[in-house]
Design a protein around this nucleic acid. Structure first.
Length: 470
RNA sequence: GUGGUUGUAGUUCAGUUGGUUAGAACACCAGAUUGUGGUUCUGGGGGUCGUGGGUUCGAGUCCCAUCAUCCACCCCA
């Protein structure tokens, strides 16, 4: 068999020792905030039954599901019926071939878990979950086919305190990570109300998708698209102020006041036309926003143009983007879904949640070099024991156990190589100290401790070395 | 799913209007009186030029296909 060039699937990545340390650092920072807010951990399987996943993410989502081929000879029926492995005229029903898929997000598995364990969990149930998810998307900058999400959700409580608490989790976590972010905040009911004002309540998803492009394509192009799509633009004055919102110069101190003013106008219009769900949306948005403490508010942008997750969110929606670095796509998102568990036969339970995109956050922090200095070390080893010959190595091997008992990360260079090579190894791994053991050291018990950063060395016994390195 | 980009050593790339044994840097390995590294010097290994066809006396270089990659759209973390 000819040697093959090794490779990994596109959209997936290997993480070397340094990268793993940095990713774990980000995970830990986020996890600490989750715990501080009273969330409990949950893990679910990598694979779910396709029946659990399908139809939960819209048409686009179904296309992006990674499907797992059934074990055994999945194509057996096909072969028997068709006489060959070719598809041909065979009645190709995917269910015969694949009935499991890789998890697409953490929310649906969570909903499934809640329904399956409804008698064992105490509502309101607050869980966090940090695991990889998979999407059969075309990879590009900041988009991977395997990536980690860090989710926090609350089910079984309608209170807007939950929304505010989850927003605080975003703000606190990114503060800890030292990244300036903008949390865009909206309510699906407002979008629905606006679409109603423009004559098409039922087509509000289409409406929202168009106005969401305001930043990207501009006011004129949005108006044009709305007109072409058949929305009634006669009553434009009601939403005109909203349409003029830009996120370009956010964060700043005045914009949210401008938006609040525009929302007041919109409220009056909703009242006139008895669009009660729109009024409710504005009320919810204001309430949640007012619960955010003053110092954090400047990073929360009220944005009635924001559209996301419209196929499942029903109330407040939010999206996080970094205000620094070159990656402009979202690094987090979330919202409220009134009937999350309904599809699994448990109606009337409301949920609200947020998600952090670990990989994108990592990419931005890496680009900005925001990781603590201590994470740049390749190895955690503090001292390398170098034996000059086989006898010295054996001495080193017993000494290293004493050093480790003192809690000092240490290792013995395992091969008999020239001292220079052994020190090369320590240098390559940024190990700061080396203990050199040869004939002289073994006779006297006075070992050579070399400081590889300073280039100095001294003669000490093992107790003194441990003391020195502790 | 749509559009575009690029595919030459481990990595980043060079390779002139198609013309002899395809180069560089870095990395790697080995040496510079066999117990002292991060610098320097010397030497070395390593590429069927993504793959398969075609044009040509001759193809890394031109054409087609295919695969892979990256980027944008869609959508999203």
């Amino acid at each position: 068999m000819a040697a093959q060039k090794p490779s990994i699937p596109s959209g997936t990545r290997d993480f070397g020792p340094e990268q793993v340390q940095k990713r774990k650092y980000v995970l830990t920072q986020i996890e600490e905030v989750f715990k501080l807010h009273g969330f409990m951990p949950l893990e679910t399987p990598t694979m779910e039954n396709l029946s659990t996943l399908e139809g939960k993410y819209g048409e686009e989502g179904d296309r992006l599901l990674f499907r797992i081929l059934n074990s055994g000879d999945a194509f057996k029926t096909m072969k028997e019926k068709n006489g060959s492995e070719k598809i041909g005229d065979f009645d190709f029903r995917p269910a015969h071939v694949s009935e499991k898929g890789l998890r697409y997000d953490l929310t649906v598995p969570f909903a499934r878990y809640v329904v399956m364990n409804r008698n064992h969990i105490t509502l309101p149930f607050k869980r966090y979950q940090m695991q990889p998810v998979w999407r059969a998307d075309r990879p590009q900058k900041g988009r991977y086919r395997e990536f980690w999400q860090c989710d926090a959700d609350v089910v079984g409580s309608d209170s807007l305190l939950n929304e505010a608490d989850l927003l605080l989790i975003y703000l606190e976590a990114f503060q800890k990570l030292g990244l300036e972010v903008i949390v865009r905040l909206n309510n699906r009911k407002i979008l629905e109300g606006m679409a109603t004002l423009h004559g098409e309540r039922t087509r509000f998803v289409e409406f929202a998708t168009i106005i969401d492009k305001m930043d990207k394509i501009g006011y004129a192009a949005v108006m044009d698209e709305l007109h072409k799509a058949g929305f009634d633009m006669q009553s434009l004055n009601a939403s005109e102020k909203i349409f003029s919102i830009r996120s370009d110069d956010f964060p700043n101190d005045y914009q949210n006041n401008v938006v609040l003013g525009a929302l007041n106008d919109l409220e009056i219009e909703f009242e006139k036309r008895n669009i009660d769900f729109g009024l409710m949306g504005i009320e919810e948005l204001k309430t949640a926003f007012n619960l955010i403490p003053e110092p954090f508010r400047k990073n929360v942008m009220l944005d009635p143009l924001l559209a996301r997750g419209l196929s499942y969110y029903t109330g407040i929606i939010c999206e996080v983007v970094s205000n620094e670095g070159s990656l402009k796509s979202s690094i987090g998102g979330g919202g409220r879904y009134d009937n999350l568990t309904g599809v699994f036969g448990m109606p009337g339970i409301s949920g609200v949640g947020i998600s952090f995109g670990l990989d994108r956050i990592y990419d931005i922090l890496d680009e900005l070099k925001r990781f603590p200095e201590s994470l740049n070390k390749v190895s955690g080893t503090k001292v390398l024991l170098c034996g000059m010959d086989s006898a010295a190595q054996q001495v080193a091997f017993s000494l290293v156990q004493l050093i480790r008992k003192a809690g000092i990360a240490s290792e013995v260079y395992p091969d008999q190589k020239k001292l220079g090579k052994q020190l090369d190894f320590a240098n390559a791994l940024h190990i700061p100290f080396a203990v050199i053991i040869g004939e002289n050291e073994m006779k006297s018990g006075q070992l050579t401790l070399k400081n590889l950063t300073a280039g100095t060395q001294e003669s000490l016994n093992i107790e003194q070395i441990i003391k020195k390195l502790s």
